[in-house]
Computed example of a mutant assay.
Amino acid sequence: MSHDDGLCSIGELAERAGVTVKAVRFYSDNGLLPEAARSAGGHRRYGPDALDRLRMLRSLRALGLPVREVRRVLDEEEKNGAQDGAGSVLEDVVAGQLRELGSQLTALRWREAGMRLVLECPPGERADRLRLIGAVSTPPSTAPLARFWRAWLPPRMPARATAAFLEVAVPQPPENPDPAQVLAFARLNALVTRPCTGAERPQPEAHKAAGPRGPAVLYAGLAQAYELAGTQLRRGHGPYAGEELDCFVDAYASAYGSRDTPAFRSALAGQLAVDPRIDRYWELVTGVITAPGSPPEPTAGTAHDWLLAALDTQAVAAAG
């Protein structure tokens, strides 16, 4: 019912906006929908602007925005005027909600794939699968993998060099995994979090690079060599002595302050042949990052093996 003063009751406002009286009361009580006045009987009265504001409130809440974020958007709209609208704050709020929804959707997809993994495996394996999956957060965190590598890498590695290597060594979990990828990541998580003594994880001789800059020089060069070798792996090319191997050897020579000579290459091949390996890690990484039905994606581990095979072949040929 209209009034001569241009104000409307809470029931009239709710009907025009298509919401419940309870919703209007909630917004008013939380300061999101100011009242223009109160009637002689103490009933809420709303001005002409209330309908547009209430419709905006309904739209923002329909997007799932929490009340605190809705308040930010409306405060900016009120501050800047209707012409500008709720610009930058609305963009920030919606972008934040999209990130949160993306995380929630990823978590749901991982839970779904995990359930399928348990459902489809033989009954005798279910207890082990449940134990592995239960140790992984959803969405999965790569923090345990990063901690594993920080313990493996040389202690003098600069933070920037360490971060660059972690980008290569730590796989990003797929947003929409299949059960096999969930199992590979769960096993990878179990591998890096199991108790391990120093004797079980000896440091390679490569970590004894000379000088304070040695480790950073070494791993920067290795990252470049692994990228080059990965290209050849994707093309299906076998190991050979080329630019990739030169880059690989140069990384060690530069870190050690040595020259790249046939003798150095022969010694390096012997050293790398006996260095400790973490093949299981790279095998599981391949399982995590390779989409079902696709060729295996190269990893730093498979690239290292390709380069080492090329080095060994060259060393054998030189010795013969």
Results as ranks from 00 to 15, higher is better:
42 G>Q: 12
223 A>D: 03
7 L>C: 03
208 K>W: 08
295 P>S: 08
16 R>T: 05
109 R>K: 13
27 Y>C: 12
15 E>M: 12
113 A>G: 12
207 H>L: 06
272 L>D: 03
282 W>H: 10
311 L>P: 00
213 R>K: 08
86 A>L: 12
143 A>K: 00
145 L>C: 00
263 A>Q: 15
109 R>C: 11
49 D>H: 10
102 G>M: 09
16 R>L: 15
250 D>G: 11
268 L>V: 07
101 L>R: 14
243 E>I: 02
114 G>D: 09
258 S>Y: 11
290 T>Y: 01
51 L>C: 10
67 V>F: 02
235 R>M: 00
27 Y>I: 08
227 E>R: 11
137 S>L: 11
214 G>Q: 07
298 P>N: 04
150 R>P: 01
188 L>F: 11
181 Q>E: 14
148 F>P: 02
7 L>N: 00
284 L>K: 01
1 M>N: 05
81 G>W: 08
222 L>W: 02
79 K>N: 07
229 A>C: 04
284 L>S: 09
314 Q>C: 02
314 Q>V: 05
72 R>I: 04
63 L>G: 00
284 L>T: 03
46 Y>T: 09
57 L>N: 09
122 P>K: 04
276 P>V: 08
69 E>K: 11
199 A>Y: 14
53 R>W: 04
249 V>K: 04
95 A>H: 14
294 S>Q: 09
165 F>D: 07
215 P>I: 01
207 H>W: 08
70 V>G: 02
127 A>Y: 05
264 F>C: 07
160 R>A: 15
76 E>N: 06
209 A>F: 04
45 R>K: 15
201 R>L: 14
133 I>Q: 07
107 A>W: 12
265 R>A: 09
47 G>T: 15
148 F>I: 05
100 E>Q: 14
147 R>W: 05
71 R>Q: 12
291 A>R: 05
161 A>Y: 06
252 Y>K: 00
134 G>C: 03
258 S>F: 10
169 A>V: 09
113 A>S: 11
157 M>T: 02
318 A>P: 01
133 I>P: 02
294 S>F: 04
295 P>K: 06
287 G>L: 06
118 V>W: 02
295 P>F: 06
154 P>K: 02
246 D>K: 13
273 A>R: 14
135 A>W: 01
68 R>A: 13
